[in-house]
Amino acid sequence: MGETALSLREERKEAFVSGIWKANPLFVSLLGMCPALAVTTNFESAIGMGILFTFVLLGSNIFVSLLRKIIPEEVTTPCYIVIIATFVTVVKMICEAFLPELYTSLGVFLSLLVVNCIVLGRSEAYASKNTVLNSTLDALGNGIGFTWAICAIALVREILGTGMITFGRVFTFIPEYSLPILKLEGVYDYSIEFFQRSLGGFLVLGIALAIIAAASSYKKNKAKVDALNAKKAAAEGGK
């Protein structure tokens, strides 16, 4: 009895944690690249996109999980798309009403959350087979994972592209402020403008994925070498 309770808790923890790092939707599963490239020219839009994305994912995961025994198997995908589209419309209207600057800066990519591979993928792969609580945790984990991933890309692109980080332009409720890093007006300017263009997006994401691939292969190699060394040491000790 105690064992099942423990494994249930571990399952919940796994549902939440795996999306953040181990199975990060963008960096590991390579999903959702369109918004990751399109809205990452500035840090604030990326945060906004991440939060709205998390809301859509949360809503759709909870609903799909609630209805998982009712939706007939032949029409799962259309049903999921309608559920997702409903939440996207709700989020879109809320965003347009309360944060019009964010709404204009995200543009059509807010509507395109309907066909976002992560949202649809989590519905198909996870929420349709798991309990409501687990699906909620999974949505939160994946939402946080995607948010930090696009924020990291946006940070690199904004710092390299404009030389500074600007706050308050999209979230107008905080005062506008620019933090100079690579560029100080009239003193020095090391910014590289093309990181703001589309090719900068492709380049940053490509290099980020390469770094992750290199790190994971280094880790694998190290584990192999460690295991070999331990074996050798054991054999020598045996002698």
Partner: peptide, 8 residues
Amino acid sequence: PVALVTAA
């Protein structure tokens, strides 16, 4: 990764 660099 190289596909994305190519796209760039």
